[in-house]
Design a protein around this nucleic acid. Structure first.
Lengths: 216, 216
DNA sequence: ATGGTTTACGACTATGGGGCGAAAACCTCG
DNA sequence: CGAGGTTTTCGCCCCATAGTCGTAAACCAT
C-alpha cells in the first residue's frame, strides 16, 4: 500500500529479453535452499525488503514458452509489506500501481494479477490485512487499505463490526488525534494475531449438531 | 470416491528409500513439457488414469531434506476422478482410504492431507463435486460423496437447496428406481457445468449498491 | 456559540444456511 | 387391496451475519 493504492515492487530490465519492461524481483534458487528462503534472500539482497509481513506461495509456472529461448520454471510468491514500512530500493526499481501496470516482462503481468486476486479473496475470509496495516490504526485507515486492495468502496461500519465480531481486531484503547479539519478522534485498533488465520465460518454444509461451541 | 470413502491412488515402493511404503504416482518432468502435461503423461502411462475430471496445482515442495541424499523439488497436483470411473491399475498400486492412510513415503502424507483439505474447502464455495460425481445422480448419492469427502454428515435437504439455488445443479427430469427396500424414487440431477466455477457470494465487505442484478 | 467535519453506534433490513416435520411415492407382506 | 415400512421431497420457521441508514458524539475553526 502506497498513497492509498495497491502497488507492486518491480524493476525495469536493462537487458534483453524484455529490455525496458518491468519485472518482478526474483532470482535463481541456490543449492541447497528452500524456495521461501530463496525469496527472502533475493528480497534482502537485491531490493532490501526485510519487512515482509506475510509470504505465501502462489503458483509454479512451467509453460515452456514463458521465457524466450530457454526453458525456465518459476515459482511465484505473494509478499505483503505494511504501509508504514518504507524500504530503501535500488534506482532501477519502483512501486507501480497494480491497476495501471506498465508493460511487464515475461508472464509477470499474469502473476501480478494472480497475486492481487489471491489477496482480494483472502481479505474476505482471513486476517491477511495484518500484513498491510501498521501496528495500530483507526478504522478509517484500515478502510483505506481495504478499499485500495479490493478496488471498491467499503463501509466503515461494516468493516469494524465484521472484523471485531470475528475477533480479528481488538481496540487498543488509544485514540488518534483528529486531522487539521477537525472531526472526532478515531479509536485505535490492532490485529489480535499477526500471522495468517482463517475464519472457518464460510464452510457451508456444516456438520450437524446444536450449534458450535460458544464461550459462556 | 470408492465404496463411499475418499481414497487416494498410491503405489507401494519396491526399492529404497522408503521401500514398502506408499507413494503418490508421479515422475520427472521431461524437457520440454508443462507440469500439467507431465502429470497427465505420468498418469496415463504409469497408472492408466485418463478419466481425471479435474486437475489443479497444490503446492511446490522444496525442503532440501524431503528426499534423502538428494535435492529434489516436487510440484504436487490434486486430481479428481468420478465415482463411476474404474481405471485399470497396475499390481503394485491401490486405492487407500485417506482417513486411514498406511505409512507414506517422503512427504506424501502431508501432500495427501493438503489435497484433502483443499478439496474440502472447495466443496463449500465451488462446484468441484462435478469431478467426483457421475453424469447423473440423485441427491442421496451426491450426499454420500459430500459426506465421505467432508468427513461428517450432510443434510440432504440443505445440500439440494444450496446447490440448486446457486445454480450449480439442475434436474434432468429423470428418476432413479428405488432400491430393494422400496422408497420414493429419487429425482436425477446433473452439474450444470463440468469445469471449476467459483461461487463469489462468499466475498464479504462487498461493493456498495442497491443489491446485485436479479433476473426479472 | 455556531457551523463544518469525522467517527461511533444503534436500529432496521436483506440474504442465505440449518432444522424439522409432514407429505409424497415407492416397496413388501399379509 | 390395505397396512406398515422406507426413502425422498418440500414447505415452514429460525437464526446468524452482512448491508444500509440515520443520529449522536467528539473534535476543529471562526
Amino acid at each position: 500500500m502506497r498513497a492509498r493504492r495497491l502497488e507492486v515492487l518491480v524493476w525495469q530490465r536493462a537487458l534483453e529479453p524484455f529490455a525496458g519492461r518491468w519485472s518482478l524481483p526474483g532470482g535463481y534458487l541456490e543449492p541447497v535452499e528452500t524456495l521461501e528462503d530463496s525469496i527472502r534472500r533475493q528480497l534482502a539482497s537485491k531490493v532490501d525488503v526485510r519487512e515482509v509481513a506475510h509470504l505465501e506461495q502462489l503458483e509454479t509456472l512451467s509453460d515452456p514458452d514463458r521465457v524466450p529461448n530457454e526453458w525456465q520454471l518459476a515459482t511465484a510468491y505473494l509478499g505483503l509489506v505494511p504501509t508504514d514500512a518504507d524500504p530503501a530500493i535500488p534506482v532501477d526499481t519502483a512501486w507501480q500501481r497494480v491497476d495501471r501496470l506498465p508493460p511487464a516482462a515475461f508472464d509477470h503481468a499474469a502473476i501480478i494479477r494472480a497475486g492481487r486476486d489471491r489477496l482480494r479473496a483472502k481479505l474476505s475470509y482471513t486476517n491477511v490485512a495484518f500484513a498491510l496495516a501498521p501496528a495500530e490504526f483507526t478504522i478509517s485507515e484500515l478502510r483505506d487499505i481495504y478499499r485500495a486492495a479490493l478496488g471498491h468502496d467499503v463501509s466503515a461500519t461494516n468493516l469494524q463490526r465484521v472484523l471485531v465480531r470475528r475477533d480479528v481486531l481488538e481496540p487498543t484503547g488509544g485514540h488518534r488525534a483528529p486531522g487539521p479539519s477537525g472531526g472526532r478522534p478515531g479509536a485505535l485498533f490492532r490485529f489480535r494475531a499477526r500471522e495468517l488465520e482463517i475464519t472457518d465460518q464460510f464452510a457451508v454444509l456444516r456438520p450437524p449438531g446444536p450449534a458450535r461451541a460458544a464461550a459462556s
